[in-house]
């Protein structure tokens, strides 16, 4: 065997070894599976966010104006007296009560919760997650921390005279619009809205628990 033969044989051997090595690389060895899982983990966060964002709860809430915005067991006079004696600025509940009272007064609606002049509007409240700017993974990599659900949308449905099951409304279109604008702005302050937000979170917790079992403790998901 001369030098050229040896060279050719060596070349063939190298080609064969390279081919076998390439084929071996395609086998799902534990290291390769691990690598694949690492890549999957980085993509998993996006999928978890997509899943959480799908968990919305809609509330169809009948709102009684002005009654739902009056603080129970307190009259306007009592609120004003308390503000005057304490010298404090009104809190949200007092501010909403006073504003509702102002609208009610100018539109001939109830001035106290025991009065019977009211308007019922339907508010659609959607609660859930907008995680488009979620950065929780930067604080603790490899985890997803489920934030509190929030109100994503509030809108007031148009009144349907055919199905309005309450005493006739005696407001002008402008007055009714004023009431609707107030209700839309202040629906988030009602207790039922808090219930809708809480339910949206419960739904998200339920789905993430279903999918990730022991990796999710109800708040923090250790991305598997």
């Amino acid at each position: 065997m001369n030098v050229r033969t040896i060279a050719w044989t060596l070349l063939a051997a190298i080609v064969s070894i390279a081919a076998v090595y390439t084929a071996l690389r395609r086998l799902p060895s534990p290291a390769i599976v691990r690598h694949r899982e690492e890549v999957a983990s980085s993509l998993l966060l996006d999928r978890v966010i997509d899943i959480a964002e799908l968990q919305t709860v809609a509330g169809v809430t009948k709102v009684v104006f002005p009654h739902d915005f009056y603080r129970q067991n307190r009259s306007v006079a009592e609120i004003l007296d308390a503000l005057e004696s304490d010298g404090d600025a009104p809190g949200d509940a007092e501010r909403i009560h006073l504003e509702a009272y102002g609208i009610a007064r100018s539109t001939g609606l109830a001035l106290e919760r025991t009065d019977t002049e009211f308007v019922v509007l339907t508010a659609i409240v959607v609660a859930g997650y907008d995680l488009s700017s979620y950065h929780g993974d930067r604080l603790s990599p490899g985890t997803f921390v489920l934030p509190e659900a929030t109100i994503l949308d509030v809108r007031i449905e148009d009144l349907q005279p055919d199905t309005y099951a309450y005493p006739a409304i005696r407001l002008t279109p402008d007055e009714l619009r004023r009431v609707a604008v107030f209700v839309e702005r202040n629906v988030p302050s009602l207790p039922v809205t808090a219930e809708i937000v809480r339910t949206a979170r419960e739904q998200a917790v339920g789905v993430l628990s279903t999918l990730f079992g022991g990796h999710f403790d109800g708040e923090v998901l250790a991305i598997p």
Binding site: V57, G59, K62
Partner: peptide
Amino acid sequence: AEYIYRNVIY
């Protein structure tokens, strides 16, 4: 999927 209703009855 879930809806929460608050119905008002007169």
